[in-house]
Amino acid sequence: MCLAIPARVISLESGDMAIVALEGIKKPVSTALLEEVTVGDYVLVHVGYALHKLSEEEAERTLQLMAEAGVLAEELEEMAGTSLEGAER
């Protein structure tokens, strides 16, 4: 019910509507809930409405933080040199 899918805006239509594309599927959605929207924006689509714009910058940053969480942990592991995984190798 609360699921929403990120899709790209490919054209703006009259009456607060836009066409979005996701994996080759095109669908009209209402943009009545957005302050502003432009072609090329990624929006979160929920029950036929664009609910929010997605921040590309923040998406990249999250992925980077996730990677760092793992990488940092692995470095610590190497420093400690006593983990089970180390022993198996």
Partner: peptide, 24 residues
């Protein structure tokens, strides 16, 4: 699928799992 596939990456999942194991 942009903004979906990246957040299902198996390698990253295993790294996060190890971080959780270490910090819990």
């Amino acid at each position: 699928m942009k903004y979906i596939t990246e957040f299902r990456d198996g390698k990253l999942a295993r790294k996060l799992a190890r971080a959780i194991e270490r910090e819990a």
